[in-house]
Design a protein around this nucleic acid. Structure first.
Lengths: 381, 381
DNA sequence: GCCGCTGATGAATCTAACA
DNA sequence: CTGTTAGATTCATCAGCGG
């Protein structure tokens, strides 16, 4: 881990790099010190699994302006008006978002956080560049700064945009982990966290090191939701390295880009002190989608259910008989797979046979999915 | 009150209309039936105090969607929500927002509601047209529709933009009213309301009249915050007249623009039936501060418990290890949420994990509920 | 009348693997 | 490329009904 000035330029002459090759070119677990867009240009295409970005949005607040390359503009001498500054902020936003699109793997996703000052411009750029928005997420601040002058509503939230590379693109979403994290209820699009303070807030000489340090809890949820252990996360506006610290804790690789040497130094010190969780703690609830599939017929072959056994739905409205090949037949003459027959009998477009069909055990009805779980426990190492 | 087809064209030849003159040209407490932009063009400049707009969201839905129980989701498939492209949507948005800017008094404000499908495009148009954003407001839905396929976060909120006519423009904000409405705490930028249902939801022949009817409580807060009695509120996408009904109850004048005759008829009937709120009804609209819920995962995210920590029941019969997503894993191989694993290990149908699981502190066992209480004390005002 | 159970429903960009 | 099949997936609220 460390700070580097420049990424080794990508070798040329390759018709198509293998995935391993691309990864070898990445400055894993390092900070690239320098201009955000220039540093991004040096990274290989389709190489990172997620990008988390907390771009500057102090434009118009302190009268600060940025050129498309992110460099600072002296507003007094340049005499720009508000519309010039919006235009240039848009150009800057599109430039780094376009590089991000190139660097992302096809099944990667991007997260961008902002406030009403900039998030609308970011959102339009995201859509115009072909990304496909999956959710907008609201970070509700448990303890926001009040509006001291009583002129507006307390500005008590920030907005995050989560997007895939395109409408049809695949992406990682650890649905079960999110549901578990939220006491077995689907995770919603509004998240409550305290603002970053206390021990977590980096300070030097009694002053905060970075004006907009994000809470680690926020990054924890983002990374847990949309990456897998070992994935690579890029943060092009690294600041004091919240993304890196959480990534290290969660067993993910990180790459930071940051212009200010002072922030880089604080980030390095902080990430070195972060302790990775051990492997058993990193295990998370798996979606049935990622578990090995068990065909219903396998349960019949292994005598978990005998051909001729009678199944019923939970309310005993229908019955069906198990046949030797793992299909079901109904007294009405219909037959098919557990899913198809369930759908046919209900007149529904689809049906999950595993939860629809039940068998009788000890006087109670149990879904046949319980048999599948028993089978999995008995056969999986 | 009634429906009219056309606004009388504004008289010309006046160098400058007095405020009273302009108001005389307004179709107060009436619905203008027709195209939104054409109808707006017929309204005089600088004549209304507030505009509330609920434009089409341009949802771009794919195929049919079914719930896990097989029932069909009645989605928004109306023609009025379909646009050829984002470019067309942007042109439409800029056209009506530009007219709105002309119609607004210099000290008036505009509110626009949307979702992530359209709100970023609306926000950019608002900024580009010279409006000055004062807040973005999040409507947190108490009872949103779940994500039935488990592919994203539950889309549980919508966003409103509140803007004045320009950076230096004056505007009305009833700070005291908002603070009173919120138990003497500054009103925040995130508001919780249930979606519109029950008796309030307009129905005809058992079916909803409008697919996206907004809750009156939402409009109530908007109008109470930013208008004074007697002010004029324009709603260019009137639908079934929620804005009109609430304006009438609060003693504000309203103007609606709506293209569909069916919606106009329903709105007229509804607004005629609207009565000023009595005190008890008012009380129900002031949402009491709800008891905050804390998920176990939140304690993990915020490091009240570290992944890898070992929990036990009060009699130390079972142990479990905390994992990164807030699930627990038992040495026997079972895993799940704090509630589920507690139930599994005891062979019970259910279990309150908060009182069942304990952690060791200062040599004694304490229920993890103690950590939850600590967290609540630290984060609640 | 109250309690509990059942069914319906809401602005939704809602699958993945294989033949 | 298309078509088919397996199989994964829901929370809060309200109306209606029966005990």
């Amino acid at each position: 881990m460390g700070v580097i000035d420049k990424v080794a330029p990508a070798r040329t002459g390759r018709s198509k790099a293998a995935a391993g090759d691309v990864r070898a070119e990445l400055p894993l677990d390092q900070i690239v010190m320098g201009d955000c867009i220039a540093a991004m240009k040096a990274l290989p295409a389709k190489s990172v699994d997620m990008i988390f970005a907390d771009p500057p949005y102090n434009l118009q607040l302190g009268g600060e302006l940025f050129r498309p390359d992110g460099s600072h503009v002296d507003a007094v001498t340049d005499d720009w008006d508000k519309f010039d500054s919006l235009k240039h902020y848009d150009a800057f936003t599109r430039a780094w978002l376009a590089e991000a699109h190139r660097i992302l793997k096809d099944d990667g996703t991007i997260w961008v956080i902002g406030s009403y000052h900039n998030i609308f411009r970011v959102g339009v750029a995201v859509q115009d560049l072909g990304y496909w928005i999956l959710n907008d997420i609201v970070w509700r601040k448990a303890n926001p700064m009040p509006n001291f002058r009583g002129t507006r509503f307390t500005n008590a939230h920030e907005t995050l945009i989560w997007a895939s590379k395109g409408e049809k693109a695949k992406y990682t979403f650890n649905y079960r982990s999110m549901k578990t994290l939220n006491d077995e209820i689907q995770m919603r699009s509004d998240w409550e966290f305290p603002i970053c303070g206390g021990q977590e807030r980096l300070k030097k000489g009694g002053h905060k090191v970075h004006p907009t340090q994000k809470p680690e809890a926020l990054l924890y949820r983002v990374l847990l939701a949309c990456t897998k252990p070992g994935d690579v996360v890029l943060d092009p506006f690294f600041g004091t390295g919240t993304t890196g610290a959480v990534a290290k804790r969660l067993g993910r690789h990180w790459i930071g880009i940051e212009r200010e040497p002072g922030y880089c130094a604080a980030a390095i010190e902080r990430i070195e002190a972060a302790l990775p969780l051990d492997e058993s703690a990193l295990a998370t609830m798996q979606s049935p989608r990622s578990q090995p599939k068990v065909a219903f017929g396998v349960l019949v072959e292994n005598m978990y259910l005998v051909p001729g056994a009678v199944l019923t739905d939970a309310k005993r409205r229908w019955t069906a008989t198990v046949r030797a090949d793992g299909s079901l037949s109904s007294p009405c003459g219909a037959s098919g797979s557990i899913h198809k027959l369930g759908a046919t009998l209900q007149g529904a477009p689809a049906c999950n046979g595993w939860s629809f069909w039940h068998y009788e055990a000890e006087g109670a009805l149990k879904p046949i999915d319980a048999l599948r779980q028993t089978y999995l426990l008995a056969t999986q190492p």
